[in-house]
Simulated assay, not measured.
Amino acid sequence: MRRCCTIKELQINEEIRDKEVRLIDVDGSQLGVVPIRKAMDIANDRKLDLVNVAPNAKPPVCKVLDYGKYKYEIAKKEKEARKNQKVINVKEIRLTPNIEAHDLSTKAKRAIEFLNDGDKVKVSVRFRGREMGHTEMGKIVIDDFLKIVGNHATIEKAAKLEGRNMIMFLVPKSE
């Protein structure tokens, strides 16, 4: 059974196996440490559920509440939290050591669009064959690229040679 929300299942009513529990009433008032039978009777009298909200405590903490409503409110809070979080994507711009100026400016414009949308940009210069002997050419290309996008980005991770690629990470400039 797969749901959109991840709610950890709590012990309710007969699933609680402890002898004594610390009981909290519907309105949040403490009723003290009571035997599990008495806690179950109190919950049944009010036509509500006994829910073990802190199973690891000594003694475990149980609350008298409507379990269906409780699950609904937790799911609602989780959904609201997911809605408010911002997903940051990493977009990649690939360059070569002998890229022409116009191609470089076109790729830089694309990177600026990504940065304005709030995404991170991974700039990679790929070296093929004998180009590995001239990695300084890749550094020059990355520096030229940085001059173009410099007003829109800050460097998160400086250019570094990793295998056959020189990689640099840019993040949007915070204002």
Rank of each mutant, 00 (worst) to 15 (best):
L104D: 01
N44F: 13
K157D: 15
E9P: 02
K157F: 09
G138V: 05
V34S: 08
V123G: 04
C5S: 12
V34W: 10
D18H: 11
T135L: 08
S105P: 00
L48E: 13
V90S: 07
K69E: 10
D27Y: 08
V64F: 03
N56E: 15
D66K: 00
D119N: 14
I93C: 05
K91F: 01
E73D: 05
V21A: 05
H102G: 03
K91Y: 02
E78R: 04
K76Y: 09
Q30T: 12
V87T: 11
T135F: 13
K71S: 00
E78D: 07
P60I: 08
N89W: 04
N56C: 12
R37H: 15
N98P: 00
E113C: 02
F169P: 00
E156A: 11
K120A: 07
M40L: 15
I42M: 14
K71E: 08
Y67R: 00
F145R: 05
L48I: 08
K86F: 07
E92H: 01
N52D: 15
F127Y: 14
V26F: 12
K79R: 08
P172F: 05
Q30E: 15
A43K: 10
N44L: 12
V21Y: 06
E80H: 06
K120R: 12
L161V: 11
A159S: 13
M168L: 12
M1I: 14
P59I: 11
G138F: 07
K91A: 03
V121W: 05
P97K: 01
I36A: 08
N56F: 15
L146I: 10
G150R: 09
A159N: 07
R128A: 12
L170W: 03
K107Q: 07
E14A: 08
E136P: 00
D119M: 06
I42H: 10
Y72A: 06
I24F: 10
I88M: 02
V171D: 06
M40E: 14
I74Q: 04
E20A: 09
R128Y: 11
I12R: 06
V123M: 04
E20K: 11
A158E: 13
G138Q: 04
A75R: 01
M132K: 14
R128T: 13
V64G: 01
T154E: 15
K160G: 04
E131P: 02
V90H: 05
K86D: 09
L31A: 11
R3F: 10
I99N: 02
D25S: 10
V34G: 09
E175S: 13
C4D: 15
K139P: 04
V141L: 06
I24S: 06
E20F: 12
L161Q: 12
T135P: 02
A159P: 04
R128L: 09
A101M: 06
I142D: 02
T106P: 00
P97C: 03
L65A: 01
F145Q: 04
D66V: 00
R164Y: 05
D117F: 00
K107M: 03
A81R: 05
I24L: 13
E162I: 11
L31E: 13
C5V: 15
Y70V: 00
K69D: 08
L104R: 00
I99W: 07
M1D: 15
L65V: 00
K120M: 10
H102C: 02
Q85G: 00
K58M: 11
A81E: 09
P59E: 12
P55V: 12
E162H: 07
